[in-house]
Nucleic acid binder design. Structure first.
Length: 262
DNA sequence: CGTAATACG
């Protein structure tokens, strides 16, 4: 099966730039979207009344933030899920549209948008609070007898190999030792696996570039989008690719192939 | 500086 995760940086803007035309060609089974920056009713207004946002051949689910133009996740699936869960049962994740999960037999696939902390110290504190609470859920997930693929924008780089300017970003949100230690706990203590790194050990594999300067042209990037899997799926990871030429977002989609029937 | 509504990333 093929799972794609993509932070679209506004699904209406991405649609105008041809995101859905691109998606159609990708042979995805499940698509996890972050930062829709829309409420579902806005995708149904006459001027946007387009089956675009409900791509043909997919079951489509949106989980929006209460605040307009902000955050929001979505999930598209070729197969109808047994169950869809929106939110995590706590205010921050639920009012800001940050988590949606689809269950298929004993496999769950989720789309996560972890808060950014780059705009202020207050936002960073807010991000750390979310991470702390979310870690409890991740631990609970590991206690379930299910396999998980938690896709999304984690807004954190893990290692030096995951960012161009390692040294100069140690104090910047997304690359602080505290945040990277959180990923260490996730991978080395809780036991989740960074599916991309299972099959690709190369440097300069970024999924996000600042839109300031010529960051993208110079590949001055960060790898902050992941597919995090339970260890039972470790041997099922077949292939990973980052669609770094994505013209419809400041993030690059992460396309992963798994040896899983779907 | 872009997205989408005046903040947030």
């Amino acid at each position: 099966m093929r799972v794609i995760t993509a932070n679209v940086n506004g699904i209406r803007a991405a649609a105008k730039k041809g995101f859905f035309d691109w998606l159609k060609k990708q042979k995805a089974d499940v698509v996890c979207i972050q930062e829709t920056k829309a409420q579902e009713h806005q995708l149904k207004q006459p001027e946007h009344d387009d089956p675009l946002f409900y791509p043909k051949g997919f079951y489509s689910y949106y989980f929006d933030a209460e605040k307009k133009g902000y955050s929001g996740v979505a999930l598209y699936s070729r197969k109808e899920p047994d169950k869809i869960t929106m939110g995590l049962g706590w205010d921050h994740a639920d009012t800001e549209g940050r988590y949606i999960q689809a269950d298929f037999g004993k496999l769950s696939i989720a789309s996560l948008y972890l808060p950014s902390g780059s705009s202020s110290d207050e936002r960073q504190a807010n991000k750390l609070k979310f991470m702390d609470r979310f870690m409890d859920d991740l631990k609970a997930i590991r206690r379930q007898r299910r396999e998980f693929i938690i896709c999304g924008d984690y807004n954190i780089v893990h290692k030096e190999i995951d960012i161009k300017n390692w040294k100069s970003n140690q104090k910047n949100s997304g690359c602080t030792p505290e945040e990277r230690a959180w990923l260490d706990v996730l991978f080395y203590q809780v036991g989740f696996v960074d599916a991309f790194r299972e099959v690709n050990k190369k440097p300069d594999q970024y999924t996000w570039w600042s839109n300031r300067g010529n960051a993208r042209a110079n590949n001055v990037g960060w790898r902050i989008d992941y597919q995090i899997i339970t260890p039972g799926l470790k041997d099922k990871v077949k292939k990973a690719s980052i669609y770094k030429d994505s013209w419809f977002s400041d993030h690059a989609p992460l396309i992963m192939d798994y040896d899983i029937d779907f």
